[in-house]
């Protein structure tokens, strides 16, 4: 069956009830094309992480529908179509990089071992360039390496959709560039559908096919921008006029509006 992508219609998210209710997301429609790299870009507090969790079936929406490949998102979770890369690497400290990479697939398939698990974990570690570090424990890894194990752990699930929640937010600028390059390579190789949450404009432009710009109070999508830059992308892309134009446009979009 051909993968159809993610559709969200009229998604709302409220916390609390009555007068004290807080609306985090309102009237949100979204379509994510299969095999595309999509970013949710916005200032902190715009509900982009919440939207990601709703799209991935981790949190439920207060109203609206999310369908993945034509089925409700809960069913998609049961069919193991999502691989999550959270903000922190959240590796199990008592397991090696390789064991951490295997871990989610073992739990998801309810099998301790299997040729497919070994193969998927080893291949995923290779993709993120950590074959050498396979037998290191998390406390022996740098922040960037830990985050790469986290990506490998999601890839080893062989999901249709990768959900990435500001995975590089805590890394320094140089490591971050390196991670972005690597992620672009991984994406080119696997062509997974990626939903990527970030508040970094250059990161979003560099990685994405489509950027959904989000606004606050309540969280909503204010613009959908297609990024027409050639692939494969290298760091030189940052210096091209087209890139600069996109970045300038987005910066303008995200500028805090003057207080009336």
């Amino acid at each position: 069956m051909e993968f159809e992508g993610i559709k969200a219609e009229g998604v709302e998210k409220r916390y609390g009830s009555g007068a004290s209710a807080v609306t985090v997301l309102e009237g949100l429609d979204l379509e994510i094309q299969p095999h595309s790299f999509v970013s949710l870009l916005g200032p902190s507090g715009c509900g982009k992480s919440t939207l990601l969790k709703i799209l991935g079936g981790i949190e439920s929406a207060s109203a609206g529908d999310v369908t993945v490949n034509g089925v409700p998102v809960g069913e998609a979770v049961r069919r193991r179509q999502f691989g999550l890369v959270p903000q922190k690497a959240a590796l199990l400290p008592w397991k090696t990089a390789l064991e951490n990479a295997r871990m989610l697939r073992q739990i998801a398939t309810r099998r301790k071992r299997g040729a497919d698990i070994e193969e998927a974990a080893a291949k995923a570690l290779e993709m993120v360039g950590l074959t050498e570090a396979a037998h290191k424990l998390p406390h022996e890894l740098s922040g960037g390496m830990a985050q790469r194990v986290s990506i490998a752990r999601a890839l080893a699930l062989d999901p249709q959709i990768l959900l990435m929640d500001e995975p590089f937010g805590a890394l320094d600028a140089i490591t971050r560039d390196e991670m972005n390059l690597r992620l672009a390579d991984v994406w080119a190789e696997t062509r997974k559908t990626v939903v990527f949450v970030t508040h970094s404009i250059p990161e979003a432009v560099f990685l994405s096919d489509v950027i959904h710009v989000m606004g606050t109070k309540p969280g909503r999508i204010v613009e959908t921008l297609e990024i027409d830059l050639p692939r494969p992308r290298t760091l030189e892309v940052f210096d091209t006029p087209t890139f600069q134009e996109y970045a300038a446009h987005l910066r303008h979009q995200l500028e805090p509006k003057a207080v009336a």
Partner: peptide, 9 residues
Amino acid sequence: ELLLLMRSI
């Protein structure tokens, strides 16, 4: 975050 990971699968 681990709890989120577990929920995502």
